[in-house]
Amino acid sequence: MVKVKYVARPKLSNMERIFFIDFIHGLKTTFKNLLRKTITTRYPYEKLTPPKRFRGTHAHRVKDGKEPPSFVVLEKFMEIHEGESRCVACYMCQQACPIPSLFRIEAEQLPNGKKRVTRFDMNLLNCLYCGLCVDACPVDCIIMTDEFENASDKRADCVIHMDDMCERGVSFDRRRYNEPDRIWIDDKAREKLWGQIKWTYTQ
């Protein structure tokens, strides 16, 4: 059972009440902030690189020899060439998605009995960028990149397809595959925005 703890409002002393001491404390704080440097980025002219695990526009990893073992198992049933999307059309991403209708995945059976993915569209207008599809993918195919400028004036432009997802995945892996997976690229970038972290234990 949840217990409720009642906390009394701290009583003001008469000094504080008459001379507006807490008002003055507040005014002091804002004045200190007034003198500090601004922490904003001048966005269109100055862009921050998001951390590697940023949840931006989706992309497909391609078959390039860095696949997980699960892909090797599935590969023999699939018609996938080097440099093509790893997608095996298992529909796991669609199952995991809160809005499954944004996916349109189609596959066909070739005459030699193998499976080939013919269509992988995502309507990003419905996407809420939760990243559940990334976690669900068994072959480490669908990922989320650091690209975040995906506004457009046409709705059709907001639907991404398999070929441009592959391109995005290749460029993302080229840029950031070997980067350590941490939120800020270096401590300097973090300290600029958030200040120095004081750990309570020694590392």
Partner: peptide, 13 residues
């Protein structure tokens, strides 16, 4: 400008 700098942003720029 004043409100911006109080909140550590530059305001109209």
């Amino acid at each position: 400008k004043f409100a911006g700098h109080v909140q550590q942003r530059p305001g109209p720029l």
